[in-house]
């Protein structure tokens, strides 16, 4: 079972994850009208910016984060922003959206000018997240774990970051054992998604470049 301290940390992280989302009026705009490729680009850029702001607010609320070296905080956020964004959008795609909405969203992304070679792995990732049928707690914890990765470039005090990441990993491990007794590999599968995210992150700068060229 989760200890009282672990339960409190879990609740804190999940509450913060729930609280900090992209504003609804922005997500609603995704589903409205037809946009030109240029408008699509601007809207997705605006959403990406909003996502980063939301991510930072979520991260500030992770106990201990703000006590880290300031430049290490920036290195962690820079290293994980893209991964956290893919995780959030995967959640959006796998949630039960009103009829037709996922299609509108998918079409908008496909028409954004991003080349097919990057789109396919992205939707494959969304599918692989969908297969895990993750609950909100798992999304929040996995996001926190991705952010608190000590091996990001330019992190000076890796030990301090490890010290924050380890308790979150332990909670996720226990949470998986409690909620997926039928699948002892569930925790390992979740961590496997972090590896997929690293690959997507790696290709992201290439993707942005091709997007701009298009």
């Amino acid at each position: 079972e989760l200890s009282p301290g672990q339960l409190a940390l879990l609740k804190h992280i999940v509450d913060s994850y729930d609280k900090h989302r992209i504003p609804q009026d922005m997500t609603k705009r995704l589903l409205q009208d037809q946009y030109s490729t240029e408008e699509n680009f601007l809207l997705l850029t605006e959403m990406a910016t909003s996502h980063v702001q939301v991510l930072v607010e979520f991260t500030k609320n992770i106990p201990g984060f703000q006590a880290l070296d300031h430049e290490d905080q920036i290195a962690l956020l820079k290293g994980s922003a893209v991964e956290a964004m893919f995780l959030r959008s995967a959640q959006m795609f796998t949630r039960k959206l009103p009829h037709g909405h996922p299609d509108v969203l998918e079409e908008r992304i496909r028409k954004s000018g991003i080349s097919e070679e990057f789109i396919t792995p992205m939707f494959n990732f969304y599918k692989s997240i969908g297969e895990l049928q993750m609950v909100q707690e798992e999304h929040a914890l996995l996001t926190a774990i991705a952010i608190l990765s000590p091996d990001r470039p330019y992190v000076k005090d890796q030990e301090a970051v490890e010290h924050l990441q380890e308790p979150v990993l332990e909670i996720l491990d226990k949470f998986c054992k409690l909620h997926h007794p039928e699948d002892p590999q569930h925790f390992a599968r979740l961590l496997g998604r972090l590896t997929e995210l690293r690959t997507l992150n790696h290709h992201h700068s290439e993707m942005l470049l091709s997007w701009r060229v298009n």
């Binding site: 850029t45 605006e46 910016t49 980063v52 702001q53 930072v56 922003a81």
Partner: peptide, 21 residues
């Protein structure tokens, strides 16, 4: 506008709380 800022600028501003204002 935020869309003209790089990732690091957005992070720095958000850490300082400037976006909330």
């Amino acid at each position: 506008p935020a869309s003209n800022l790089g990732l690091e600028d957005i992070i720095r501003k958000a850490l300082m709380g400037n976006f909330e204002d």
